[in-house]
């Protein structure tokens, strides 16, 4: 089965940790062996005592004592080994943290490089130029637009004036009607002022009587 990621290699660090752990195993095995030896010496001492051989019993006990000391020593060595192993493993973690920090720093630097002061200034300048250009265009277009606007405004003005004039004219006829309450008006006379106003066109009449023809 050839699939899967490429085979990871054992690092020197792994080998070092392994050597330490192997030594630890050797010590553990030795301890187990010592423990059985201890038990045996104890049994021998007991046996010798019951057999009345005090000298041999003492010897066995001395041996046992010595083995116990060895056991204590190996315990100490085991602790030292474990400490060393932990230190090594922790060093790897520290290394990884360092690598992480370094990577972050590198990225940050790269980002800073991209955002150099000169570049920022250049960009700002360019932006300012662009804005100025835009303004120029706007002004150019703006004046043209206002000319057109002007024409329209004038047209509108003329229209309003015309409407005002018309409104004024339509009101006019009514003025004489009410203004001459005393005069002995006939229907003929009444037509005179309207006729006078009619000079401006027939528009006023539809304007005044608008509701009917519309």
């Amino acid at each position: 089965m050839g699939q899967g990621p490429s085979k990871p290699k054992a690092s020197a660090h792994d080998k070092a940790v392994f050597e330490l752990k192997k030594q630890r195993d050797v010590l553990r095995k030795y301890q187990k062996q010592l423990a059985t030896v201890l038990d045996r010496e104890h049994a021998i001492a007991k046996q010798c005592l019951t057999a009345g051989d005090k000298r041999r019993a003492l010897l066995a006990l001395r041996k046992k004592k010595y083995q116990e000391q060895l056991l204590a020593k190996t315990d100490q060595q085991l602790v030292t080994l474990e400490e060393m192993t932990s230190t090594l493993e922790y060093a790897v973690i520290e290394k990884e943290v360092m690598a992480g920090l370094q990577q972050g720093n590198a990225v940050l630097q790269a980002l800073h490089q991209e955002m150099s002061v000169e570049k920022v200034e250049a960009i700002l300048d360019e932006t300012a130029e662009a804005i100025a250009y835009q303004k120029e265009i706007e002004e150019l277009l703006g004046t043209k637009l206002s000319e057109e606007d002007e024409a329209e405004v004038e047209r509108e003005l003329a229209q309003i004036q015309e409407e005002a004039a018309l409104a004024l004219e339509t009101k006019m006829p009514s003025v004489p009607v009410t203004a001459r309450p005393v005069a002995e008006n006939t229907g003929v006379e009444e037509e005179v002022p309207t006729a006078a106003a009619a000079e401006k066109g027939k528009e006023k009449k539809p304007a005044s009587y608008a509701p009917l023809p519309a």
Partner: peptide, 10 residues
Amino acid sequence: DHQRRIVMIN
């Protein structure tokens, strides 16, 4: 080891 679920060191 064959399945690459371990890294053989020794």
